[in-house]
Simulated assay, not measured.
Amino acid sequence: MEILFWGCFVGGALFAFISAILGDLLGSWLEGIFDAISADFLKPVVTASAITTFGGAGVLLIRYTSLNDTAVMILAILIALLISVIIYFAYVKPMENSENSIGYSHAELPGKLGEVTVPIPSKGYGEIMVKFVAGNTLHTAASWDRRDIPAGALVVIVDLKDGVVQVSELYETEQQKEMM
């Protein structure tokens, strides 16, 4: 029985060491295996930690308790499951939800501020840059109030029509300029 636990402990530790060296390559290979059975919680890091914990708990329980083999096996499985659940909810799940994206919805554009990068004529098109948290996006722009807008001007997006943002120049008062 102790050989089984040592094998799981050493195998899990080797897997962790190899995956740290090979990183995403090994993880993406193994994740594909688990996609077939559609089990979100069977990520390689969770599976490896379960096997390693099972082995380590089994070795410790055999050496430092007087429990019989069946009790040691059941307790080692329960400890491995508990640690795996903790790792999944404390590490894996939050990391999956923390990906950054520059994705945005066109519904978010009205009201956003932008800077003119290509001058916008009163009857024609220019370009503006809108800053989002994860990056900047460029948009074809037209003047909403039919006025020329120079490059570098601060504008507010009023509307979106046929993929073209309709913008109006944001005028600053003298008091606002002095504050900057």
Rank of each mutant, 00 (worst) to 15 (best):
A71S: 15
A16G: 05
D40I: 03
K43I: 02
L14Q: 11
V72D: 07
V59N: 00
I128P: 00
F15Q: 05
F17W: 12
N97I: 03
M95Y: 10
Y125F: 13
E115A: 01
K123F: 13
G55H: 07
A71D: 08
L14W: 03
E96T: 12
S66D: 14
D24K: 13
V92D: 04
P44M: 12
G58I: 10
V118D: 06
L14E: 03
I33F: 09
A48F: 06
F41E: 06
D35A: 03
G58C: 06
K93A: 15
S38V: 13
V46L: 07
T52V: 02
T65Y: 09
I51L: 14
I79R: 01
A80D: 05
L25S: 15
L22R: 10
S38C: 02
K93F: 07
S105H: 06
Y125E: 15
V45F: 12
D69R: 03
F41R: 07
K123M: 13
G111A: 06
K93R: 11
F54M: 04
D69T: 08
L109S: 01
D35M: 11
P44W: 14
L75C: 11
M129C: 12
L42I: 06
T53K: 06
I77H: 11
Y88E: 12
G126A: 07
E31V: 08
V85P: 06
W29G: 08
G32R: 02
S28Q: 13
I83N: 11
L82M: 13
H106K: 09
L82N: 12
S28W: 10
S66A: 15
G124F: 09
K112S: 08
S19Y: 03
G126K: 00
G27D: 14
E96P: 02
G32W: 08
I102H: 11
E115N: 09
S66Y: 08
